[in-house]
Simulated scan of single mutants.
Amino acid sequence: MPLYYLHIRIGDKLDADPDGAELPDIDAALAEALKVARELTAEIPGYDGSTVIEIADEDGRTILTLPFSDALGPKH
């Protein structure tokens, strides 16, 4: 199974995922990133719409960027 890294970026600061996760495909990596974003936003108020998760492949290339605002949905 491919290895994906879910790095968290807040502005210029990157919190790199050192271990990664074995997931079947990019869709599973995106689902995991959405889950992580929702959990972190619920637990730590400092994460907001300016925070993103950069999904990187085994070679370290960023293949998808997920803004936390996408995970939170529209504000009411």
Rank of each mutant, 00 (worst) to 15 (best):
G11W: 01
E43Y: 02
A71F: 05
K35F: 03
L30V: 09
D57K: 09
E58A: 05
K13T: 07
R38L: 06
R61P: 00
G73K: 06
A28L: 05
E32L: 12
D15G: 08
V52G: 02
P45R: 11
L72K: 00
L23I: 06
E32D: 15
D19V: 10
G11I: 04
V52H: 00
I44A: 07
V52Q: 07
Y47P: 01
D12T: 03
I63P: 00
V52M: 04
L72N: 04
P67G: 09
E32H: 15
I10S: 11
L66P: 11
R61G: 01
G11E: 05
M1T: 13
I8C: 09
D25Y: 00
A71K: 03
R61T: 02
P45H: 04
T41M: 06
S50D: 13
G73Q: 11
S50K: 08
A21Q: 15
S69W: 08
I44V: 12
A16R: 15
K75W: 11
A16Q: 14
I26F: 05
L34N: 07
G60P: 08
R38E: 10
I26D: 03
T62M: 02
L66C: 10
P67W: 10
L64K: 14
D12V: 00
I8S: 09
D27R: 02
L72R: 05
E22N: 10
D17W: 13
H76A: 14
Y5C: 08
T41P: 01
L3I: 15
D17G: 13
A29V: 01
D59W: 07
T65E: 14
A21T: 11
Y47Q: 05
K75I: 13
H76M: 09
P18Q: 12
A16V: 14
D19C: 13
E43G: 04
A21L: 15
G73S: 11
Y5F: 15
A16E: 14
E39L: 14
I10Y: 04
L66M: 11
R9D: 07
K75R: 14
L3F: 05
R61I: 02
L6F: 13
A33M: 02
P74R: 11
L14G: 00
Y47T: 04
A31R: 12
Y5I: 11
G46S: 01
A56D: 05
A33Y: 00
K13F: 00
P2V: 09
E43F: 06
L34V: 01
S69Y: 08
G20V: 12
L34K: 10
Y5D: 06
D15I: 14
E54D: 15
E43P: 00
H76F: 10
L30I: 14
L66Q: 11
D57L: 10
T41L: 04
D59Y: 07
K75M: 12
A37G: 02
